[in-house]
Design a binder for these strands. Structure first.
Lengths: 123, 123
DNA sequence: GATATCTAGTTACCATTGGTTACTATAGAA
DNA sequence: TTCTATAGTAACCAATGGTAACTAGATATC
């Protein structure tokens, strides 16, 4: 009864793609700490452009992972906050982040070994 | 002492990007079941091209997540198998897959709500 | 009064990546 | 002789990601 993740039409794969998004997870983890405004997010996440931020926020909102609230100030401010659904996804991402922090050294070492090997074979 | 995932230079982000790869996780989960050969993988993972498969396998090998073994048959067969490191990563991905399977319905519902809302506002 | 600043974006454009298709080499079977 | 199988690579095109400039409205500064 398990869905076949390897089948192209499997919708579970859509979700995996979504999580695979370069910025989405970072934004989700940030908003778990506290609601934030647009430019506040932009300044916190180094390297993200306004376009990408706007785009990713929109798709995260569409997926029901965060909600957007425009506040009638001058200039208008917009607050983004994580939803209940978003919280559960963020929790599911935690083991991954932990893995990354624990195993980064090993991965980098493997890369160095591989590159050295390739260089040797080329010679 | 926690690394800052939001800083551009943070190497942990490299790992997250890696996991974000569209095919990498699928391949890893497959190889956890059993070692597989190139075309066997290609046939199992619907929609992947030879080029992408070759590319992703190479980068996974470079990261030390799987190992490649060429067997001198005719024609040459190549067997890919998951490493110990790869196993731990696959385990860290499990909660994510479970989340996807559990919450897919909610996400799709949220998307429908959002799209209906947009359509309404446009009118 | 003109210019700069803040907000949250959008638009046009370019670079990089992802994907498709055709091709390689080698050997055995039809 | 052509077809199969293996595991890829090369050339090309489409889609995505990223950069920089621009919008709008109100306030602050020169």
């Amino acid at each position: 009864m398990k869905p076949n993740v390897y089948a192209a039409e499997c919708p579970t794969r859509q979700i995996l793609d979504r999580v695979g998004d370069k910025w989405a997870v970072l934004i989700l983890l940030l908003l778990r700490e506290e609601p934030m405004r647009f430019n506040q997010l932009r300044r916190t996440i180094e390297g993200i452009s306004q376009k990408m931020l706007s785009q990713v926020l929109k798709s995260l909102e569409r997926d029901g992972l965060l909600k957007r609230r425009a506040i009638a100030t001058v200039p208008v401010t917009v607050e983004y906050s994580i939803t209940q659904l978003g919280l559960t996804l963020a929790a599911a991402v935690d083991p991954l982040r932990d893995w990354a922090e624990e195993n980064l050294k090993d991965v980098l070492a493997a890369q160095r070994r591989y590159d050295a090997q390739q260089k040797e074979e080329a010679a």
